[in-house]
């Protein structure tokens, strides 16, 4: 079992502060104030960019090279999950069920065939 280390706990406490600051961002100060327009618009695009920047290497890379699109459990699972999400978009179960579909593709290929 992994050891608990102080660095990770420090990172976690910082992440907790980030949650509070982000969720309460505009009610920290009593004074009404506004962000410049470009920053307000930028808020529309940053979260989705951050998510895909994190996951793209996890899905598309094997080591440090682009992997072969066939015979890769992660890529096929991600394609299945995204396809399912857009097929069932708007239903309350679309998100969790897409994880389930992705894992149903991933596990047999990864554990069974070793892809």
């Amino acid at each position: 079992m992994a050891e608990t280390d102080a660095w990770t706990l420090l990172v976690i406490v910082g992440l907790a502060v980030i949650t509070v600051v982000a969720r309460g961002f505009f009610f920290i100060s009593e004074k009404p104030w506004r962000l410049p327009r470009w920053a307000l618009r930028g808020l529309q695009y940053a979260p989705v960019a951050a998510l895909t920047a994190v996951i793209a290497p996890d899905i598309l890379l094997a080591g440090h090279a682009l992997n072969t699109p066939w015979r890769d459990a992660r890529l096929l699972a991600a394609l299945a999950a995204a396809a399912f999400y857009f097929w069932r978009r708007g239903t309350s179960y679309a998100l969790p069920a897409s994880i389930g579909v992705g894992m149903a593709v991933f596990l047999p290929l990864h554990v069974g065939l070793g892809w």
């Binding site: 996951i55 459990a73 992660r74 999950a81 999400y85 978009r89 994880i99 992705g102």
Partner: peptide, 16 residues
């Protein structure tokens, strides 16, 4: 390789 479920969860949020 169950940690891949985390990647799939983020993929779902990104799609939404």
């Amino acid at each position: 390789g169950l940690e891949f479920a985390g990647t799939l969860a983020l993929l779902g949020v990104a799609c939404s």
